[in-house]
Design a binder for these strands. Structure first.
Lengths: 179, 179
DNA sequence: CTGGTCATGTAAAAAGTTACATGATTTA
DNA sequence: TAAATCATGTAACTTTTTACATGACCAG
């Protein structure tokens, strides 16, 4: 079976929800996936084109009154199979999570203590804001999608984000003290 | 001031340690930076070339007996300035950390419960191994570089890795229970 | 004599971002 | 009347990985 990159699988997965057009997919990503996967239009449209070319999806062009044309994509059986197959594979290796703050702190000897403290304080603040964003999304899902079949899994991913962010905040605090 | 990408700054930073050649830089990255930043030869050599061309570093070619030639790079004042300037800037925005496991779990409705459990168990196992790797590196630094000026900062970054990995492991456990 | 270490590098491909172009409708 | 929303897409660019090429030495 041919291989695709993870962003392609993400799009394949999103097509199982009721998002059908490139525009809708982008919105879905920005609202629900953005904390662990983001994709730009520059990737979405060419990918959708390719999915169709390779028989993983079919297109239907809708002409709407007062709105631009809209292309709706639907997974084919082949597309569903490809997605299912990917879902079954465990990940081969943990990806390296690039972290600019750690990179800067790593070379902290070339900075003043104040600069390092500022770097960490700023990072902490951004993480706290992120945590709040997670809480907001979580609440939104809990309120509006209680009986949505996917909601359970969406909440799991948010819980991950919260826990990891919490740990990072605690690290900031501890490191600020130790500096 | 011209902008460079973060991998360039990483290389600039490594040149402040006593790593001087592309080969040594790669080793340094694999041993010390790998948990939050990795770079391939395909990036290192062209970057070093560029650093020299733009006056951020100077080269000295060493002819060694019984070994290949070795190019040693040294930061210039300009190079040091560029590094320092970068270190001073706080990060503009938190990067999105792509996570393949979360992406798969997000579409967990299309999997059996067993598959999701397997995915999480496998992820947990990999995280535990990673945690042990961190402990190993930490011990190595504590033992051999106690009085190295950089050691303190290196240990901070490892602490980050440990804390975040710990949180991820706890999430795996909680999610496995809740599934 | 095989595989590892030391050491350089390049070419091609893949992956991803950014900026642009288009244009109608709706809302403030 | 300005700007936001809906909706498509591409071209150029940047970043990064992968695979290849070269070659000597040393240890098992």
């Amino acid at each position: 079976m041919q291989k695709y990159n993870d962003s392609t699988y993400a799009i394949l997965g999103i097509l199982t929800t009721n998002c059908r057009s490139g525009y809708e997919i982008k919105q879905f990503i920005d609202n629900s996936l953005n904390h662990f996967w983001k994709i730009s239009y520059g990737q979405i449209y060419p990918t959708l084109k390719r999915l169709e070319e390779e028989g993983l999806a079919t297109v239907q062009t809708l002409v709407q009154e007062g709105k631009p044309e809209r292309k709706e994509y639907f997974l084919t059986e082949k597309g569903k199979d490809v997605l299912k197959n990917w879902l079954e594979q465990p990940l081969t290796q943990l990806p390296v999570e690039r972290n600019e703050v750690l990179l800067k702190l790593f070379f902290g000897r070339h900075q003043t203590k104040e600069q390092s403290l500022y770097l960490l304080a700023d990072y902490k603040q951004k993480l706290e804001k992120l945590y709040q964003t997670y809480e907001g999304i979580e609440e939104g899902i809990s309120r509006h999608n209680t009986n949505h079949q996917d909601a359970k899994y969406w909440l799991f991913t948010l819980d991950y984000g919260k826990r990891v962010t919490e740990a990072a905040i605690a690290w900031c605090e501890a490191t600020i003290k130790e500096l």
